[in-house]
């Protein structure tokens, strides 16, 4: 479904990604793990359209999307949920969600999608009229996920959904991410919380210094000695 092949990405003269390739299949949950500054967010921003690769290619549903403008990428069915969620603080929860349905194919069905999102996150329905700035950290992340789902995506890109959240909320959010597959969605998430992401993902890639250093089934990675030592502290 998503195929990244051999991309190099630069910030000015500094190279951040070196020949990165990866693949996400239909209805799969794939995690990309790695330490701070490894280039995870850079990769996500490149797929999501806010950065352009200097070389290499990104294909989505058989079409080239590398170098397309952001709106076109959203329109093609990719929802990018940025780090910290970034809800619109002075708009109500409902307005935030409606804004998520901005792409043409989503806008006509927004009432129906809204019902589904409220079903996934009942908390958002309770807070419907509240301004987003008054939400707790976990609720903000739910709102961001809900806003992403409102665009009727085929693929969800999550940037660090566990960012700054209490463990109990984190578990709830990860359960939701896992359940998205049942609705036909495909998930690609980047995380520093290695254990939890490996638990919900089918496959995972490990990124170090802008390169993919290993990949494999999550279960196998959990047993991998290097991963255990470097990321799980065992």
């Amino acid at each position: 479904m998503l195929e990244v092949s051999n991309i190099d990405v630069f910030y000015g003269k500094i190279q951040a990604l070196w020949g990165v390739s990866l693949r996400v299949d239909q209805e799969e949950i794939v995690a990309l793990i790695g330490a701070n500054g490894a280039g995870k967010t850079t990769l996500l921003n490149t797929i999501g359209g806010s950065l352009r690769p200097a070389s290499g290619n990104v294909m989505f549903l058989g079409k080239k999307i590398a170098g397309l403008a952001l709106p076109a990428i959203v329109e093609s069915g990719i929802a990018h949920i940025p780090e910290g969620g970034k809800p619109f603080p002075d708009m109500s929860v409902r307005e935030n969600l409606e804004m998520g349905a901005y792409p043409y194919r989503a806008w006509t069905r927004k009432e129906e999608t809204l019902k589904q999102v409220y079903h996934i996150f009942p908390r958002l329905r309770e807070r419907e009229r509240q301004l987003a700035r008054t939400l707790s950290g976990g609720e903000k992340q739910m709102l961001a996920m809900g806003r992403g789902l409102m665009s009727k995506p085929r693929l969800c890109l999550f940037d660090e959904p566990s960012y700054g959240l209490a463990p109990i909320i984190l578990l709830e959010l990860f359960r939701v991410i896992k359940s998205l597959r049942e609705q036909g969605l495909t998930v690609f998430l980047i995380e520093q919380n290695v254990r939890h992401s490996l638990e919900i993902a089918d496959r995972a890639y490990v990124m170090e210094n802008g390169r993919i250093t290993s990949e494999g089934k999550s279960k196998e990675l959990l047993q991998n000695d290097h991963i255990k030592k470097a990321y799980l502290g065992l």
């Binding site: 806010s50 709106p71 619109f88 307005e95």
Partner: peptide, 23 residues
């Protein structure tokens, strides 16, 4: 209209509004 809402979201966070697919 939805464009009114979109303008408001641009005022709040231009980057995030680009992520929701607003040109």
């Amino acid at each position: 209209s939805k464009y009114g809402l979109a303008l408001q979201s641009i005022g709040e966070d231009e980057e995030a509004s680009a992520h929701t697919g607003i040109n």
